[in-house]
Simulated assay, not measured.
Amino acid sequence: MSARRATPRPLPAPLHPTDPAGAALQHHLHTAARAFLEQDRLVRHQVPGSVERLRGYARRIRDALRACAPLVEPRWGEQLVVELRWLERALTAEHDREVALARLLRVLDAVPDDPGSVRARHLLERRLSRELAEARVATLNALSSSRYRLLVDRLTLVLHELPGTSIAGRSCTEVLPALAAMAFRRLARAARRLDADHGAYEEWRHARVLARCGRCAAEVCADVFGEPARAFAGQLGRLVDVLGVHEDATKAAEAARAAANTPRIAPQTMFTLGFLYATERAAALNARREFRHAWSEATKKKWRRWLDETEPGGNAGSAHPWALVELKDCEPDDEL
């Protein structure tokens, strides 16, 4: 019997803080992998939105593997992360073009029609629609490849087994809050270096990767420790969303700039494209400032009080002997 047809192991009963930490991660990955496989079925039937949801669940699984790396057998986890990263990159080009086109056309919808805006709309639709069509072909090729089918088989096996380390056998109370605290400290170090006015785009994108890892670590904790951990994950999720707007606006601005480099376009069209570029750059800057407000809220002690109450020693910053095995760094080029 193939792995794809095997009967998945039932989800465990509600987790208890004394249960092994590996069981909590298995529970989280089991849920995400089932959702991924359901989207895979819908993709085959060309259900609208299924490709984007497939990409989202692939990202969730990868975030969980990175956030909880000390619990997973290194070689197995790293190989799965590499394959999930490949899939995300294959699906992201289509997503980026769709979002950029939608954002730019929304701005044009809010301005009066004149020769410049009409020509800019036609240019953007023609240019980005062509790129979008090319990206869709690449998406279909990826989803039809043997590499993708092997990835699906690997994710099916996640429903049955999670190769773990000795740390995975330790209790949730001993392990999971420390993982969440380490992920949050990494994000905090990155957030302190961000400059809303002059910071490079890559630094903000890196912060989003770390925020996603932190959110995922908190979500794994939420399956065990309940609402306090879930509320903390919600605060980190707000940071992820704000930084996602920053990424989308930045990419839309670059799409407008690229269109402005089209040879022999009329001055009115150039002016409109410059206006679009400036509008999206302003939206990106606004997202950076909104992040500062969201970060101020997320760092309030009330959201992390559960860490003090659950982590051994009563100190969210304390280190366990095994914690020298730190979370794997999420490098900026690790994410699109």
Rank of each mutant, 00 (worst) to 15 (best):
L15R: 00
A207H: 10
G234I: 05
G244T: 14
F184S: 10
D153F: 14
R215N: 00
H198K: 13
R136Y: 02
A6M: 15
F275E: 15
L104A: 14
A138Q: 10
A120L: 02
E254M: 12
H30E: 01
L71K: 03
P332T: 05
S166F: 11
Q46T: 08
T269K: 14
R106K: 15
E83L: 07
P14F: 01
F184Q: 09
E98G: 02
E134Q: 05
S50E: 04
E52I: 09
L37H: 02
A294Y: 12
G226D: 03
D329G: 08
L176W: 00
L143A: 06
T18K: 13
L159I: 03
V107R: 13
T173H: 07
R126Y: 13
A110E: 12
R106T: 12
E280A: 11
L327V: 01
L123R: 12
R66L: 08
L123E: 10
W204V: 08
V152S: 08
H293F: 03
T7S: 08
L243Y: 02
K251M: 15
V209S: 12
M182R: 09
H30Y: 02
N286D: 07
L37M: 05
S146Q: 09
E78I: 04
V175W: 03
L336N: 05
A13M: 01
R97Y: 06
W303Y: 06
F291T: 09
S318L: 06
Q268C: 10
G164Y: 06
L243E: 05
E161S: 11
G317M: 00
V118C: 13
E311T: 05
S129N: 13
E280H: 12
R5P: 12
E94W: 00
D308E: 11
A323E: 03
R205M: 00
L236R: 07
P70V: 06
E280V: 04
A256G: 08
T7R: 10
L25K: 13
N141M: 05
K251I: 15
T250I: 09
G214T: 12
R208G: 02
R292C: 14
L105E: 14
N286A: 04
A298T: 14
G77I: 00
A319N: 13
A67S: 13
G317W: 00
T18A: 15
R136V: 00
V51M: 00
P112V: 15
D40C: 04
T173F: 10
A100E: 15
V81R: 03
T279D: 02
A316W: 10
P263W: 01
R230A: 08
L132D: 03
A24T: 09
A102W: 10
V152I: 11
W204I: 10
A64Y: 05
E335H: 06
A207F: 09
W76I: 00
R75Q: 13
R185S: 07
H95D: 02
E311Q: 15
T269G: 09
D248R: 07
L285K: 05
R304I: 11
L150H: 14
T250Y: 08
A67Q: 09
M270D: 13
E297D: 10
R230S: 06
D19F: 12
R136H: 04
R119H: 09
S296L: 11
R264A: 15
R193F: 13
A231M: 01
T279Q: 03
R41K: 05
